[in-house]
Design a protein around this nucleic acid. Structure first.
Lengths: 334, 334
DNA sequence: TTGTATGCGTTATCAA
DNA sequence: TTGATAACGCATACAA
């Protein structure tokens, strides 16, 4: 059947009895071709099992039909945390729906940066999506490559898509206030992440709107880990045994806090109302009781891909960023 | 600094005062070039920030310097199960250490097969690693593309790397026998996976070697899920309340069985010895008490990459497959 | 609507 | 050891 080598457009054209150019036009879906010759070429394509040579195409068009997803994180975390899993899934699906390919790069540390810099050039990819949650790591300038950040980046002018962390946190705490709570504690996320900062800001917004004072004794720094949820809850109870609600900046910490609260004999949400942030982690741990702020990870991915496609096709348009709403998802006993 | 377009080899050559050919030789590390001109070219490369154009290179050399990892599984599972996470990590690291790039494709169902078939051609990749644990899904023939399976494939002639499931299971049950147990039950894996079948075979091997009878009442079919571990343990205890050991074909089921055994008031390993298979899942659940057969996921990935590299560079060599040993990892109370 | 010719950036062949 | 030159397979401007 196949004689070893891949068929070329030349051979397709010859079999169809047309010129190379015409065959190319058919393959690329050009309008200016008669139905009859189109049919002939399409037949030849099927006959030979022709697949366009991407290298040759790229060389000519200066497009690669490839986009890159760079995650500034260790593979371990990427696979362990539901946030990344959901995000990669959403982006993967969205790219699949286009004619482009996706290549995924994880950058655990600086040592991988040089290789990546070589790859992040217009010769290799048409655009880049960057997930860099921590402030620390900065990617090599993509040499004029269209770039979309997932999660709010340091550069305020950059194009990005993010979840409304601040608004989501605000709504979470609003909800607690509506339930009549007045002594509302917070276990924060790491302050070197925008998501950590924004969620704390949302907490403050809600307090201010409710006319409640911001009390430092009610705020305990966390780092999104289970352990910091446990110790955070313990520290808060130590300082303020009178607290009647806790807002944890993510679900992992919320679940940790939940265990500690229970251990101390407190009923949730009877004695202490508890709200987390994420959705996916709560689902993974199947704790339907937890009220949480749900991040639309699928939309996040789809929007990132869409934004990037726009910037690739119209590089000179003004850069619009998108902030997706984060909905409150009530637990069973709320 | 950069004037928009990427520098070409032509420009490097001009700046270095040599011909294109010579510049190419330097970039590709050819021997036949004087130290002096090499220095000059290398300087020019740095000066201009030259990066070889992969498309042009591929077009000429008919190599892509890219290998593909195809996982015949849903993204959800790939990210959820520690087995895949560990495997992808191992392969990713191993490929990183080479000059090749890795592109990852997940194939949840047949509908993605056509796109994949277009991609799995010599024009796009130099070779393919396939993880297809279930017997069902079959990939399009890679058209003479070097291919290495991770996990034993149906085709006995194919090149593959696998963990010694049979031997590992054998050692697990040997261990139980050595501890003096005689009524050893088994919760199997799905029988449409080689790993499920092989581990059951290993169980039988050990029984036979110990002169113990194979008793169908002591064998309960499972599907690697937590639920089947729970129900499997329940069913076994119902039929054979006298059992004194359980070998579960993976850790997820072992943990499920552990819960059920405890629920029924049985002490593990006092009343019932319990051994699982996997390692990574046990670590994730942090149940150090569980004895388990550990799969060397890092080695598995590294070996797959190595095997594939060999087949790419020497396509005519005989195809060697590798079976990696699976070590028994004793729990704390064994 | 169609065929022909050119060049994308690179490596490999051949002379020098 | 080096420089010139010819493909690699394709898209496209131009001619017909």
């Amino acid at each position: 059947m196949t004689d070893g080598r891949q068929p070329t457009l030349e051979e397709v054209a010859r079999l169809a009895g047309v010129g190379r150019g015409t065959a190319s036009r058919v393959v690329n879906g050009s309008e200016h071709v008669s139905p009859h010759t189109r049919e002939a070429v399409e037949h030849a394509v099927r006959e030979l099992g022709y697949v366009p040579n991407q290298a040759a195409r790229s060389l000519k068009t200066r497009r690669t039909d490839t986009v890159s997803l760079v995650i500034a994180e260790d593979e371990e975390r990427v696979f362990a945390e539901p946030f990344f899993a959901g995000l990669v899934r959403g982006i993967s699906r969205a790219v699949d729906a286009t004619s482009r390919r996706l290549v995924l790069s994880m950058v655990p540390d600086e040592s991988h940066l040089e290789r990546l810099g070589q790859f992040l050039t217009p010769q290799h990819v048409d655009g880049v999506m960057v997930v860099s949650l921590h402030d620390a790591l900065s990617l090599p300038q993509g040499a004029g490559l269209p770039i979309v950040y997932v999660g709010r980046p340091r550069d305020p002018l950059a194009c990005f898509v993010d979840v409304d962390n601040r608004g989501g946190a605000r709504r979470a705490v609003d909800h607690i206030v509506e339930r009549g709570r007045r002594t509302i504690a917070c276990i924060t996320g790491p302050q070197d992440m925008a998501s950590g900062r924004d969620r704390l800001d949302g907490y403050r917004d809600a307090l201010e709107a409710a006319g409640l004072p911001y009390d430092e004794d009610l705020v305990e720094p966390g780092d999104f880990s289970d352990a910091s949820g446990v110790s955070g809850a313990a520290a808060l109870l130590e300082r303020r045994p009178d607290l009647d609600a806790v807002f944890a900046a993510n679900d992992v910490m919320a679940l940790g806090a939940l265990r500690e609260l229970s251990r101390q004999g407190l009923d949730v949400p009877g004695d202490v109302a508890l709200v987390g942030f994420d959705g996916s982690a709560a689902a993974a741990a199947s704790t339907p009781a937890l009220t949480t702020v749900r991040q639309p990870l699928g939309d996040l991915g789809a929007t990132a891909v869409d934004l990037l496609a726009r910037r690739i096709e119209h590089p000179d348009d003004e850069r619009t960023s998108v902030i997706l709403p984060a909905e409150l998802q009530l637990g069973e006993s709320s």
